[in-house]
Design a protein around this nucleic acid. Sequence first.
DNA 1: TAGGCCATCTGGTCCT
DNA 2: AGGACCAGATGGCCTA
Length: 386
Amino acid sequence: MKSNTYELHNYADLNVMESPEDSKDSRKRKAASKVEKYSLRQKRQKRNPQSEDASPANLPDFQLDLVDPVVEPVNKSRKNTSTKAKTKAPPLSKYRRKTANARERTRMREINTAFETLRHCVPQAITGEDATNASEKLTKITTLRLAMKYISMLSEAIQDPSYESEFIGECLEESANREARLDVEIFDDTELEVEKPKSPPVRKKTPKTKGSGKKTSTASKRQSQKQTKSTPKIPPVSSGESCYATSSIGSPASSAYASLSSSSNSSPGLEAECLIGLQGISDLDTMLMDASDGDSLSCLSPGYESLLTGGGGESLLPGCRGDLPMSGLEKSDVELSLRLLDHHSRDSFDFASDQQPSACISSLASLDGYPFADILHPDFPDMFLT
DNA sequence: TAGGCCATCTGGTCCT
DNA sequence: AGGACCAGATGGCCTA
């Protein structure tokens, strides 16, 4: 049976909770206003394989409706305790509640990590329209919107040949002005200084001056969470790395690479050794080869190259310069061909900043068949964005 | 101070 | 039964 009923959730309750003194009054009003703005989620139905109505095709599409919470019968609310009390499942035990919360936190953290990855994959040329300050962290919704925009632009660029020629002309001109050049070279570790770890980009904060009173336990907890957020155990990867991970979605190397690159923010050599210790040298080798399809790691960022070289001239991986501080692999096991996008991006590379994801473009360009492999650059003109 | 954004908790639902 | 997913509620932080 197809049901077109909608869950009212708790919105109906909001109208009877108005209280002038209520400190949460504004929130209630905000929530209540959302009722007017947004629709209610359609109630999910249990699948019944025997019933054709239960097939996904027959399920009613998600529908955006304005539902008057007053008109909507209250007895549809989940909060209808009179009927709910009989069918309500017993609350989870404390243990199960805790584990469920932990799982939920983990899940949300993964989502946020994905958002962070996506955030760094959106070129700054696009984000600049929405974020005036480059150091300002994009919100989730903004990230999604910009990503959609970016994808649509890339799709357009691929499908429209004339688009390509226009774009190439513009970019070549710009390229000439910038003296940018693409090189395939073994990275010279003396050219890149590994910067000290910085705090990852966070939302702009002003020095906390007000609220001098001691924090509540929740507040201090949140503060500590913010601190943790500033120095996450899995620090946000710099632009190129995260993009690399994205461009190799589905491959085992993606996560591995993210881990590697994350480490580059702090102490490349040490972290790399730690990681190698965790993953196993041969695994890392495999991951690297998988990541590059046996080809060159052309879209690796300077930061990663620095990681490979230990940032101090000591090579940590075969194929890099210097002696290997580890055994079990021959230098010939892995051939790393590292490409720097151009000297400009390398010289100004900043691990901690929300810098233009040049390597992200590079990783896109490294994809087979990508038409603009040679022209994509972080500074590509704004005309491309319109 | 309002509003936006976020993290977390929580309960409901679905799936294995 | 337990985990994943989802969405509402709540409260904190931050900015305009």
